[in-house]
Amino acid sequence: MLLRWGQLNSKRTAATSNSSRLVEQTDPPLREAGGWNHRAPLRLSRTDLPTACKVANRRYHPPSQVFLRAVPIAIAKMRLIIRENKQQTSLWVAEYIVHRINAFKPSKDRPFVLGLPTGSSPELVYANLVKFYKNGRVSFKHVVTFNMDEYVGIPTSHPQSYHSFMFKHLFQHVDIPPSQIHIPSLENYQQYDDLIAKYGGIELFLCGVGSDGHIAFNEPGSSLSSKTRIKTLTKETIMANARFFDGNIEAVPKSAITVGVKTVIDAREVVLIADGRGKAEAVRQALEGSISHMWTVTALQMHPKFVMAVDEAATEELRVKTVKYFKEIEGDQDKPKAKL
């Protein structure tokens, strides 16, 4: 289905990709970025255009000045990738990230900007990325990373800090220069979104999801237009995290710095990984629920390029119809070389 100006993407549909059509001419750097325009204007009403362009850090041209020409565009599309288990799911996600980085052909002047999470689901993705790096399939030399969150009140060298997690599972194993890494902190969080914009926005944001549907530390009730900020952690989160601090609730940080829901949505692509029965309800809300700040993950329904990678267990709360639909559009997933 082709999208027209002013039309909201209310239905998800099999994309007729590679179609050519008339769109607003973009600034040259964006066209060079692979020629694919996933930017917000495509799915927003005309009145939203100035805001959308601001968000995308581009100048807004009123319609009278727009020079129209044909360029290929990607159609807004949601994908659900279902794999048998956690291992298969993380392998697919790692393959996909490697595919995206390599297709982007990043360079010193045009790095691939990657948003990164921590947690048990991403851990295996990182292990696979490290393996692919060691096999020479990918390089992180021209990748710039932005992590989504970090605790406040524990030193970065603390074994439970997200600095430690990222160093342990990814950064120490690959060729990424330390200067290209960003993790939110008390010092930088106020400029964090500006810094992301300076790099031209995040190309791909990898996300996990909490069992209550939170993305980053945007717990139920967080504003869907929130940006990077300090969040006080809920009692439930502190209790749940105590297991990482020798069961000592006193030792658990009481607040964290996190990117906002909007920071995630502003990325040109969001890849969300969820595995296990514990995430099934969050997956159901993300796919079948209504957009609500009580399940912050649902905000991603508005995203033009959103990929969810889940294992079988995480689909257990979904309707059969939903699963069938996505399986159908993804084609035969049991092929050894499944599509990326």
């Binding site: 970065t156 060298s157 160093f167 120490q172 330390p178």
Partner: peptide
């Protein structure tokens, strides 16, 4: 030295 501190704080390879 801690490789992690060297990486994050001193940004040294």
């Amino acid at each position: 030295v801690s490789p992690q501190d060297t990486f994050y704080d001193s940004k040294l390879p």
